[in-house]
Design a protein around this nucleic acid. Structure first.
Length: 980
DNA sequence: ACCGCCGGGTGCC
DNA sequence: ACCGCCGGGTGCC
């Protein structure tokens, strides 16, 4: 149950995808790999060619350096032109004409990827050698070889003359290969112990009222250093006047842009939000507190006041530049900003505002909302002198003055429950005569920085938005005036000056990408000081709009907060690296060549490079990490017990019937060797058996036998709908193989694969007649996509013909016993089948339990309500939460519960861990007891066995193991489940 | 480019 | 002299 494994879903949670092993993934894992990601492939061979025209271009290359080949079909001299560029994208030359014809052909037809390495570097100003290697799918090998030989080029087998990543000559692949075991260990440890060099501690400024735990101080220290320190990552070496990258063997004349920011990948519950709040308040420009006065301010008032303040104290100033220390709150002129957290009258769906923070009287949101929570606002000296305030803002300023700022803001702030006063827009544009900084600080600031940038943009999933507001409320001193604007809801203020003048702007990924797809995106116009991606792994798929939108933000510092830097695969890391602009790996080709491919092939050097790279931008601690020999956090114990459930005679008969039938079908597939081709069927059988173990009512009315060839279109349709229901109803959050996100508007193909309708429609549209299923390459047609019919009312049926089941009884007797022993103990009742939760409601109600329910179908707003209700200790609040395994997500805090009843085993043990983590986290006061109900002598028992084995599978981490090995293990798994 | 290619100058050995 | 050879001019795609 430990979170040593930071990949594959262990020990973390993820809002959209707690169940890592979805059907698509399972199918994808069978070796019918999608080659849409061209980062793997086999080496066809290599050949020596020449690069010409060097004298016309400025790009430099070293001996052994990689170069990229870029087609230039628009080149006026030769439509076959292939441009050669170095790691930084500077053009070096062109591929010689005759060779370019060949490459153009291969590249344009996507027969192979062509990669170049310069074996000798530049020896003259006219031409140089390049070794080209060809990578692609095995099925294209012949075509490529034919192309090459027919144009009388000679393809050498292997990467002759290819330079290893370590610069040594790779004479027929001499790179040290690791065993699977070594690789697994290395991978496991990749994100571990990334704190050895980062052990400094730093206190937060006083504006943060929650004392930081030691590990949080370390994180703060590390984050400040990451933002301020000018040092380059150690894979850069200064060689003469050049900067040399030891990973790519490339040099640049200009100092590379270092990353300012990084990945804070602590386990959930360790306080990433608090640490980030501390960072925002503690590390403004030049390492000063957000609200420290300018020491170099020409105004004597300001400087004298400033000097009175000890280092690290937060200092406020009013708009005219008068400063006062927060430690002397009464004299602080504070501008209070109200935050309103209210049930928005109009929010119907998840995209509506539920919470809004707005400067009172400035945002239309405020009118509709009633403030319930007070948020404070730190007025910073950086807020400009009045003379800088733009015309349009003067009114606001004077309005503010007229109304009078709350003096002695402390009292005001704590009592004001309604939106009080706003500072309106404070535009900090022109900042002449500003700041004299110390040499160290000067070194750390980059000339391109916009000194006026002051706002931090926080982007998070909607589900944790309210958490940020809560945490700000909780951790920021009430007398500190922090301008926080919630950029959310249709009435959001899109004025970029207004946004720029905030201390913090909170928004969601959805809002960001919605804005981005529009014309002038305000968030993309603002020059941010810092952008923080909360649950940053959300952007792991580079193809999504939100990922694209995030990359385009204009900011000086970038942070990613995530408990799971890699979700399934090393590939997930790339987008994070790209967001951080960790040069040159933000370009996919270099990531693939230097990191992705070598690592997935088990190359030791590649792994070392990856480790170096991760280490220089990441801090990760787990709940079990230790600081100076002591655990970071001490959580109450947690224990797991398995309760075996005996089926009744009748249930056993029903189960056996289904089991025998399923076995027959599957054993036929096994005998035919067609298990994987019929994977959807096989899974359907297994799901049915699992449902039997819980309650017969889960099966629904459609029990058409699988595996039987459908004769009529109506029957086929019926079967497909059933499969669709199975896929979507198992609690696994099905992933669409096209967009790699949760399936929206699900449709199922005739080959039984599920996609989002828009995604697969697009595939069909673009491929026309040749459209093939991305998962199995079977032919697909738009007319054959089957949609989910409107759900017939089966619920009533279920309730009317109520019967219990052994598992229901087992749960009920546990709950009743618990209530009689201690009625203050709260429980989570977890199932993958939302229908099962519905069934469980009946006996719970009968026994008079007060319960709430949280499942994936609920709106965010409703979820938040339910969680709040459950967490509340008010009398009469619910004792039980019915929780679907896929519901909720990161940041969900269910610490009120100390009992977890896992009703049915999950495919992926990590999903269970994750669920348990929702209550076994900071704030948990009691020991946590987890009960797993397992039906004796059923597939469930076998699943538990397989879970154990699974925890050790390497392929989970890489997803790129030898396909045949994977196939066999998958089939073996099914055989084990069915005891074949 | 310490090359290849082109085209003008040239022409026994 | 409708060739060969020489040597200067020249040069990515």
């Amino acid at each position: 149950m430990q979170s040593r494994r930071w990949f594959g879903g262990a020990g973390f949670s993820f809002a959209d995808d707690p169940v890592t092993e979805t059907l698509s993934q399972a199918i994808r894992g069978t070796g019918e790999e999608l080659d849409r990601e061209p980062d793997t492939g086999v080496l066809f061979g290599s050949l020596r060619g020449s690069v010409v025209g060097l004298r016309y271009y400025t790009g430099v290359v070293n001996k052994g350096e990689m170069v990229s080949l870029v087609r230039q079909p628009q080149n006026p001299y030769d439509r076959n032109a292939v441009m050669v560029a170095n790691v930084y994208g500077s053009q070096v030359g062109h591929i010689k004409r005759e060779l370019a014809v060949l490459l153009a052909n291969i590249m344009d037809n996507n027969l192979a990827r062509v990669e170049g390495v310069v074996p000798f570097g530049v020896t003259n100003q006219f031409t140089m050698s390049v070794v080209l290697s060809f990578w692609g799918r095995e099925e294209n090998r012949d075509a490529v070889v034919r192309q090459i030989t027919s144009r009388s080029f000679k393809l050498q087998s292997g990467p002759t003359g290819f330079m290893c990543a370590d610069g040594s000559r790779d004479l027929p692949r001499k790179s040290v290969l690791l065993t699977a075991e070594e690789l697994k260990n290395a991978f496991d440890n990749l994100f571990e112990n990334l704190m050895e060099d980062k052990i400094g501690e730093r206190e937060a400024v006083e504006a943060v009222c929650t004392p930081l735990l030691p590990h949080q101080k370390q994180a703060l220290s590390w984050m400040c250093v990451s933002e301020n320190n000018a040092a380059l990552p150690h894979f850069w070496e200064v060689k003469g006047k050049l900067f040399y990258n030891t990973l790519t063997h490339s040099s640049v004349r200009e100092r590379p842009q270092r990353v300012r920011g990084g990945i804070l990948a602590d386990d959930m519950g360790l306080g990433k939000t608090l640490t980030t709040i501390a960072l925002i308040l503690s590390n403004f420009h030049h390492g000063k507190p957000l609200c420290e006065p300018e020491k170099s301010s020409p105004e004597p008032k300001a400087s004298t006041t400033a000097r009175k303040n000890p280092e690290g104290k937060c200092v406020c100033s009013d708009i005219s530049g008068t400063c006062s220390s927060l430690t002397n709150v009464d004299s602080a002129l504070s501008l209070s900003l109200a935050l309103s957290l209210s049930p928005s009258g109009k929010s119907g769906d998840g995209d509506q505002a539920e919470v809004s923070v707005a400067p009172a009287g400035h945002s239309p949101c405020m009118r509709a909302n009633q403030a319930e929570t007070q948020v404070v606002c730190v007025e910073s000296v950086d807020v400009v002198q009045e003379d800088v305030v733009e015309d349009g803002d003067k009114d606001l300023v004077s309005e503010k003055k007229a109304k009078g700022r709350p003096q002695g803001g402390k009292a005001k702030a704590t009592t004001t429950k309604k939106a009080a006063k706003t500072k309106g827009k404070a535009v900090s544009t022109s900042r002449k005569g500003k700041s004299v900084v110390s040499p160290v600080e000067a070194a750390s600031s980059q000339s391109t920085d916009d000194p006026a940038a002051r706002a931090t943009l926080i982007i998070c999933p909607l589900s944790v938005l309210s958490n940020w507001l809560d945490q700000l409320d909780q951790h920021v001193r009430a007398d500190v005036k922090l301008n926080v604007y919630l950029y959310y809801g249709s009435e959001r203020n899109r004025d970029t000056h207004f946004l720029s003048s905030q201390h913090m702007v909170l928004t969601t990924y959805n809002v960001l990408s919605a804005d981005y797809s529009g014309s002038a995106s305000p968030l993309h116009t603002v020059s941010w000081l810092r952008v923080v991606l909360d649950e940053g792994h959300i952007i792991r798929n580079p193809n999504t709009q939100q990922s694209k939108a995030v990359l385009k933000l204009n900011t000086q510092r970038r942070w990613i907060l995530t408990g799971t830097p890699i979700q399934n695969n090393l590939r997930d890391l790339w987008m994070l690296v790209a967001f951080l602009r960790l040069k040159p790996f933000d370009v996919r080709e270099w990531w693939n060549r230097v990191i992705q491919r070598p690592v997935t092939q088990g190359d030791k050097t590649g792994l070392q490079n990856l480790q170096a790279l991760v280490k220089c931008v990441t801090l990760r601690r787990t709940k079990t990490s230790r600081v100076c020999g002591r655990p970071l956090v001490s959580l109450p114990e947690r224990s797991v017990r398995i309760e075996e459930v005996e089926l009744t005679q009748k249930e056993r008969e029903e189960y056996e019937l289904a089991h025998t039938e399923g076995r027959t079908t599957i054993s036929r597939y096994v005998a035919e060797g067609t298990v994987l081709r019929n994977y959807a069927d096989v899974l359907a059988i297994l799901v049915r058996l699992r449902q039997f173990c819980c309650h017969p009512g889960l099966l629904g009315k459609t029990t058409t036998h699988t595996g039987v060839v459908a004769v009529t279109p109506a029957e086929l349709r019926e079967r497909l709908i059933m499969k669709l229901r199975l896929v979507l109803g198992t609690g696994s959050d099905e992933e669409c193989a096209v967009c790699l996100d949760s399936v929206r508007l699900p449709v199922i193909t005739h080959c039984a694969h599920v996609y989002c309708r828009p995604c697969i429609a697009e595939v069909i549209r673009s491929e026309q007649e040749q459209a093939r299923c991305p998962l199995c390459r079977g032919q697909i047609k738009a007319s054959e996509l089957v949609e989910f019919p409107l759900e017939e009312e089966e619920e009533s049926n279920l309730l009317e013909n109520w019967r219990s089941s052994s598992k229901v009884e087992a749960l009920m007797s546990s709950l009743l016993r618990l209530r009689s022993e201690d009625d203050s103990i709260r429980s989570l009742v977890v199932s993958q089948f939302t229908r099962f939760l519905t069934i469980l409601e009946i006996p719970l109600r009968e026994e008079g339990f007060k319960f709430v329910r949280l499942d994936g179908t609920m709106s965010q707003k409703r979820r938040a309500q339910v969680i709040q209700e459950f967490q509340s200790d008010a009398p009469g609040s619910p004792l039980i939460m019915l929780l679907s395994l896929k519901a909720g997500g990161v940041g969900i805090n269910l610490s009120a519960a100390s009992r977890v009843f896992l009703m049915d085993p999950a495919w992926n043990p990590a999903a269970e861990d994750q669920c348990v983590d929702r209550c076994h986290r900071l704030g948990q006061k009691r020991d946590v007891v987890i009960t797993k109900f397992i039906v004796k002598g059923s597939v469930e028992e076998n699943m538990v066995k397989i879970q154990r084995q699974k925890q050790d599978l390497v392929e989970k981490a890489f997803g790129t193991k030898n396909p045949s090995e994977r196939k066999t293990s998958r089939v073996d798994e099914i055989r084990a489940l069915m005891e074949l």
